[in-house]
């Protein structure tokens, strides 16, 4: 029993870790942080291994939350630096993370973010997303559509600002 569980965990790790860490790498600034976030997601998964029905979805949602925490922490640090150095304007932190993906996690409310993460990144079909989130399939489709519309608006706005 324990061996089969260990094997399942090992297989899951081999299949999902590189992908999850790669996705995190698009959101954060360096490889080390991406590994930390992916590792923490797996740790949380295995700490409650018996209770998680859909590990893939759990991993992506957890990683997205951790990425948001990481951004908040960075923002606090930047503000503290800005407050400390009054005379020199601190140059904005170079954004190495993929801004479009960052937009996805940053601009969407949680209700819309989770279906997008599960469907597009965790590769879950709508039926599975519906089961996992406890929403009807039609509701999931409507949420995905609303999320895409919102993303388009944000994307257009960010493009206008850059030009």
């Amino acid at each position: 029993m324990k061996r089969s569980r260990d094997e399942a965990a090992s297989e899951l790790f081999a299949a999902l870790y590189p992908r999850l860490a790669g996705w995190c790498r698009r959101l954060v600034d360096d490889d080390e942080t991406a590994h930390e976030i992916a590792s923490e997601s797996f740790t949380r998964l295995w700490a409650r291994w018996s209770r998680v029905e859909e590990p893939r979805g759990f991993l992506y949602v957890t990683a997205a939350n951790l990425v948001r925490d990481h951004w908040r922490k960075l923002e606090r640090e930047r503000r503290a630096v800005r407050r400390a150095t009054t005379e020199a304007a601190v140059a904005p932190h170079p954004e190495q993370a993929d801004p479009s993906v960052r937009l996805l996690v940053q601009s969407l409310p949680e209700r819309l973010r989770i279906p997008i993460l599960l469907h597009y990144y965790a590769d879950m079909p709508i039926r599975e997303v519906s089961v996992l989130t406890g929403r009807k399939e039609g509701t999931v489709k409507a949420d995905l559509h609303a999320a895409r519309e919102l993303l388009r608006v944000h994307l257009r706005r960010s493009l206008d600002h850059s030009h």
């Binding site: 870790y17 590189p18 860490a21 995190c24 590994h35």
Partner: peptide, 19 residues
């Protein structure tokens, strides 16, 4: 333009040894 945002992650990061 959303294709760029919602494309599946192509980049993979292999876990460090012992992770």
């Amino acid at each position: 333009p959303l294709v760029v945002v919602l494309r599946p992650p192509s980049e993979h990061l292999a876990p460090p040894p012992g992770r």
